[in-house]
Design a protein around this nucleic acid. Structure first.
Length: 773
RNA sequence: GCCCGGGUGGUGGAACGGUAGACACGGGGCCCUCAAAAGGCCCUGUCCGAAAGGGCGUGCGGGUUCGAAUCCCGCCCCGGGCACCA
């Protein structure tokens, strides 16, 4: 968790789910690594500190203590020996080490680029942290700035990040989000030449089959050549005016797809390489500088945006793909009006042929474009991991030698954001000798994005106390990958993409041996109150602390699992909590009075030769074991699992006076044992009362097969698909015998009377369906 | 616009193509109590019927099947993601 403030109901949910899984797997014989740590650097913690007037370190440590206290109160089975915070030097030492590995491999680099700037948080942001033009953290509208910044070369991994999604067991919608974000498009790069200036302009297109339909050419307002092209033409002033206006427009206005298309003629032309056509050049804000080459060929006949533009400016519209629909036509069909070599071909087949053809002439080639950009990792903020680089006038960017790590974040008093890193003011810290030439150098003063810290913490958990290295590769070979990752959807393209990138890069560099960090991902749904997201401003916050104070941790945990399927959103109900509280009380009390009355027995096994209610209750217990195990293994059907335990308890309560003490003890001990992953304190105590044993040291129960099988069962008798009766049938009965039983059932006779049975469907163990006419 | 989820009683939800509504909440009745709380027992989809039983029912309309909440086709509504990406 981010340690800011205190745990909320969402934390209670994730860790209740995680703990249930951890307990279940431990008792099925697995070694379970169930760790805890704090994503302590970054904007949430720092902003919280600024607001409360404390130093970020103080407020972070305070929040961590509160999280620890509550997690212990909840009784989550965490291996505390592996605990750490990402803000501790013993952790970020290795964050810096990883940074240097990436730097040395050319995967971390510095460059000047148009970047996203949050005016409120006073820092640059990664593309992933800009949601619809707004800062992911504070919601402010972001601005564009031209700055030199640090990047990680995640784009080198675009194809692998995309392809390997097929190998991991993640919810399909999360994979889809990542695929969308990576945004791989296959097509071609084709060069259009501006003869007037003698400059070649490559464009990217996914539709090389429509090259013959290009009737004009458009450049983004940010394209560096726009003013140069217009220079000296009668359109120069108009172009300058348009560009000035376009670049001051907000991302939101600019991105509005409903907005009418606007643009200005540049007074120049390019030549279409496939047919020599002279195409007028325009500048228009519907073309984006950050995608492709910042320039496009416009095919109004087969692109809706180009069509709208052509209509507005009376530009020619040409059909080059046949079809019955009106233009613009974006579907498939035969190539027309293009070139004798391609006319008549299906457009999909023509794509490759046209690309080969222009490639042979040196005017273009097949190409792939991605939406994914390199990850901008530097931040102009105080509370983050220092970047272990020294700037030297002579040597350039010099990595801090590994034996000098960690570069410790200095304690400074003025850490408020101010548009450049507050660390720049820590003069003594900044001034340092260049590790290479010894001349006076300056430390890098930007800090790392928090998402860098969290991109490898799962690796550190495996070898958390290693002082000599980030980890021992042999230890990681045993634990990695993470078998089950649990978290919210909000990380779908941020953390979950970055962590995959780190894993692949570190494996490529020889430090790791896995391609994917998280084999299975489970995304839990949100808990709402009265149908709305909980928030302080709405005053509908349910605090886990208050629930635990009132009902105890078991009720809080079991209720949250009982409320519904954990991957779906669920609405909090105070009455529902009450119900689970009463159930736990009933179960515990019956166990206590039973133990009191009949004493403990460490081997709560059902005896031989059970009959009547004893047999029925023992069977119910075996059935519950079978059902709960099924609900846990591979599925996260905790709500159903708890319901099965409730049913077993209900039978115990109903039959308690009719059965032998051993039978009741067995059934109740089974209920407690099955309940343990969801309500560990109650269940462990109840189990101990009955057996004198610790349930967490017991293997997960296994149902007695002979109790799962029965000599007779209730046969459902259907006529024409409708249930008409139910009769007892012997388990091994033949199909003919079952049909006979069915026909003999009184209410079946009433429905087949006077009709002919034309078909008999027999499902042994279940039902007989007679088709009567 | 495109891509994912989801739509089942008063409510949360359960159902390998095979008894729809498990389990729980809420509601009703009763027991215990001087009374209440707590606890216990029973009823609770809907309509017809005294009952036995029957009709109708899983967003809507079709289809496949002996049999569909479940599979297929076409819609509607809710939630989420993506979206001037060439």
């Amino acid at each position: 968790p981010y340690p800011s403030g205190e745990p909320h109901i969402g934390h209670l949910k994730v860790y209740s789910v995680g703990d249930a899984i951890a307990h279940f797997h431990r008792r099925t014989g697995r070694r379970v690594l169930h760790p805890m740590g704090y994503d302590a650097f970054g904007l949430p913690a720092e902003n919280h500190a600024i607001k409360s007037g404390q130093h970020p370190r103080e407020s972070t440590d305070l929040a961590i203590r509160e999280f620890q206290r509550q997690f212990r109160a909840w009784g989550i089975s965490i291996d505390w020996s592996r605990e750490f915070g990402t803000h501790e030097p013993r952790y970020y030492h290795w964050t810096q080490w990883i940074f240097l590995q990436l730097f040395n491999a050319g995967l971390a680099y510095r460059k000047e680029a148009a970047v996203k700037w949050c005016p409120k948080d006073q820092t640059v942001l990664a593309n992933e942290q800009v949601i619809n033009g707004h800062c992911e953290r504070c919601g402010s509208e972001v601005e564009a700035r031209q700055l030199e910044q640090w990047f990680f070369r995640i784009t080198d991994y675009a194809d692998r990040l995309l392809d390997d999604l097929d190998r991991i067991h993640w919810p399909e919608y999360v994979k889809t989000m990542q695929r969308n974000w990576i945004g791989r498009s296959e097509g071609a790069e084709v060069t259009f030449r501006c003869e007037e200036l003698g400059i070649d302009y490559p464009v990217f297109t996914t539709r090389p089959d429509t090259l013959f339909g290009a009737t004009f050419f458009v450049m983004a307002p940010e394209h560096p050549d726009v003013l140069r092209l217009a220079h000296g033409t009668p359109h120069e002033d108009e172009v300058r005016h348009y560009v000035d206006h376009a670049i001051t427009e907000s991302t939101e206005e600019r991105g509005d797809t409903e907005k009418p298309k606007t643009g200005v003629f540049l007074g120049r032309h390019v030549t279409n390489p496939v047919n020599g056509a002279r195409l007028p050049m325009y500048v228009a804000d519907y073309v984006l500088m950050e995608y492709g080459t910042g320039a496009i060929m416009a095919v109004p006949g087969h692109d809706e945006r180009d069509f709208a533009f052509a209509k507005t400016y009376n530009l020619p519209i040409k059909r080059v793909v046949g079809g019955h629909d009106e233009l613009p036509y974006v579907g498939d069909g035969p190539i027309v009006h293009s070139h004798p070599e391609f006319d008549g071909l299906h457009n999909r087949d023509a794509v490759h042929k046209i690309v080969e053809w222009i490639d042979r002439q040196g005017k273009g080639h097949a190409s792939v474009n991605y939406r994914l950009r390199d990850w901008l990792v530097s931040r102009q903020r105080y509370w983050g991991c220092p970047i272990p680089i020294v700037h030297c006038d002579r040597c350039g960017l010099v990595p801090v030698p590994e034996h000098e790590l960690p570069v410790v974040l200095p304690d400074i008093t003025d850490y408020a954001p101010q548009g450049r890193s507050p660390l720049a003011a820590a003069d003594e810290w900044v001034r340092v000798r260049c590790p290479e030439c010894g001349a006076e150098g300056r430390r890098e003063t930007d800090t790392m994005d928090t998402f860098v810290d969290s991109s490898w913490y799962f690796l550190r958990y495996c070898d958390a106390t290693n002082d000599d290295a980030a980890w021992d590769p042999a230890v990681l070979r045993r634990w990695m990958p993470v078998d089950q990752y649990i978290g919210g959807v909000e990380h779908a393209i941020l953390h979950l993409m970055y962590a995959r990138f780190f894993t692949k890069a570190l494996t490529d560099l020889g430090h790791l041996d896995v391609q994917e960090p998280f084999e299975r991902l489970f995304t839990q749904g949100m808990i709402t109150k009265d149908g709305a997201k909980m928030s302080k401003s709405k005053g509908n916050v349910v605090s886990p602390q208050a629930i635990v104070d009132r009902y105890g941790a078991d009720t809080a945990r079991a209720y949250i699992l009982f409320i519904g399927p954990p991957d779906q959103d669920a609405d909090w109900s105070d009455e529902g909590v009450e119900g689970v509280y009463k159930f736990l009380g009933r179960l515990w009390r019956l166990c206590a009075v039973t133990a009191d009355a009949i004493g403990q027995d460490p081997e709560p096994l059902p005896g031989e030769g059970l009959q009547g209610d004893d047999l029925a209750l023992a069977r119910k217990a075996a059935w519950a074991i079978d059902r709960v195990t099924d609900a846990m293994a591979g599925r996260f059907a905790f709500n159903s699992a708890i319901a099965r335990v409730m049913e077993l308890y209900n039978d115990c309560s109903r039959l308690r006076a009719n059965v032998a003490p051993d039978t009741l003890r067995f059934a109740l001990a089974t209920a407690a044992s099955l309940l343990f992953p969801f309500a560990p304190h109650t269940a462990a105590d109840a189990y101990h009362l009955l057996t004198g044993r610790r349930v967490w040291e017991e293997p997960w129960p296994f149902p007695d097969q002979s109790l799962l099988e029965r000599e007779t069962y209730e046969l459902v008798c259907q006529v024409n698909g409708k249930v008409r009766d139910r009769v007892q049938a012997a388990t091994g009965a033949s199909e003919d015998e079952l049909v006979a039983l069915c026909l003999a059932a009184p209410n079946v006779q009433a429905h087949v009377d006077g009709k002919e049975v034309v078909k008999r469907v027999v499902v042994p163990g279940k039902l007989v369906n007679l088709v009567a006419r």
